[in-house]
Simulated assay, not measured.
Amino acid sequence: MSRTILGLIAGLLSAGALAQTPLADHHQHGFSGPILALINAGADGPPAISGADIVRHLDDAGIMRATVLSTAYMFGKPGRAVENELAKVRAENDWTIAQAAQFPDRLVAFCGIAPQKDYALEEIARCAANKHVRGIKLHLGNSDIQLENPEHAARLAQVFAAANRHHLAIVVHMRASFSKKRPYGAEQARAFIEKVLPAAPDVVVQVAHMAGTGPGYDDPPSQAVMSVLADAVARGDSRTKNLWFDVASNATDVTPEQAAQLVRHIRQVGTKRILYGSDAATSSNKPPREAWAAFRKLPLTDAEFATIAGNVAPYLR
């Protein structure tokens, strides 16, 4: 889609004509059969979620474009024995790329990378050579990256630097592992800003789920991380100049208190840095239309909703 068309639509949004509909869903997933089998421990799972499925959901919501995030990093989860792991990672990333390539005016692909793996930098370079790939997706909880660990932070910085060299945006699920009860709070947020973020000064870094997990916004450690990140943005820390935040599934089933906290963080960051996302139309998440309707229930103003609906990350322009 041309910048002219996007500019025209953004103008309509600013005039209020399309204020109820986001231009883009910045956090979607396709799921292949092998990934679903992995998630379901080898059992028969639901059918794959393809690019065509995502586009149908976008059409239903009146949304023009989406970022499709590969979950190939799941094959690299520590402690998970996967035969021919690298081949499976590449196959999953290639499947996601192929789904996006079927709808080049609607979808862009991000490769899933397990940053602790020896093949991570090679896979970033391989993905970067494909014109349909605009970025990488990292899941620090799934990969058991502990930001307070200097070795982990240094390795993550190498991955950020590789993405920056290849002009790839980064979507990072920061929330530390629940299953292993890893620490997650202000210390980890400061380590991210000080040790990792400077390695990618030229590309978009999109913090998924407002530093949490979704659905909802009820995790105090995630809120503590978001507070540190928001403070850095609000005081003009130069390391956060390309830092964006997506709200994928954060407004689902929130209490009034959680909604108020989410709105405080949105306003502290500034609505111009907030990207709409729905996560994926699975049993635990709402599809884009319903997810936007849930987000619209937050105590934001019409002008704030219009700004967020009109935001398009640079990698989608």
Rank of each mutant, 00 (worst) to 15 (best):
T240L: 02
N242W: 10
T252Y: 06
E187N: 14
Y276L: 05
L229P: 12
K181A: 14
R264G: 09
G236M: 07
A280C: 15
G16R: 05
A10V: 06
G16C: 05
G42K: 07
F192K: 01
L229E: 04
E151P: 01
P287D: 03
L316T: 05
V171P: 04
K241H: 14
Y73C: 13
I124H: 06
A291T: 14
R90F: 08
M210Q: 15
Q258K: 08
H166M: 09
A157H: 15
Q116H: 12
H265M: 07
R56M: 09
Y217S: 07
A251W: 00
K131Y: 10
G112V: 07
L18P: 01
L262Y: 01
Q223R: 01
L243W: 04
P287G: 00
K180W: 11
A169S: 12
E148P: 11
R134H: 14
G310Y: 05
A224E: 10
V263S: 09
G310T: 04
P115R: 02
P220S: 11
M174D: 00
D60R: 13
Y119V: 03
S283M: 12
P221S: 11
K297W: 04
R65H: 00
R296E: 15
D105V: 01
H29E: 12
D253I: 02
M210S: 11
A157Y: 06
S227P: 02
A41T: 15
R273E: 02
E194A: 10
L121Q: 15
A293V: 04
S32E: 01
A41K: 15
K77A: 11
H57W: 11
I170W: 01
N311L: 01
A163V: 04
V196W: 09
Q188N: 14
V55P: 10
S70Q: 04
V196N: 06
E148I: 15
P150L: 08
N149A: 06
T252N: 03
E122L: 10
F75L: 06
G135Y: 02
E92Q: 12
A19L: 04
S32V: 00
T271E: 09
G76C: 08
A98G: 09
K131W: 10
L138F: 04
E122Y: 11
A61L: 03
T96K: 01
L18Y: 05
A120T: 05
F103R: 04
I35G: 02
C127T: 07
R289D: 15
A66R: 07
D60M: 10
A157L: 11
A189R: 03
G7H: 14
T271I: 00
A294G: 00
I39P: 02
Y217G: 00
A72V: 09
S143D: 14
G270R: 12
D302E: 10
L243Y: 12
V205T: 13
G51V: 08
G33S: 14
R134Q: 15
P221R: 04
A309T: 14
M74N: 06
D94S: 08
P256Y: 10
G236A: 08
A248N: 14
H57C: 07
A48K: 07
P78Q: 01
V82G: 00
Q20M: 13
A15N: 08
L275P: 06
R106T: 12
N250E: 00
V225P: 00
F178Y: 09
A200W: 05
K272G: 12
L168H: 00
T282L: 03
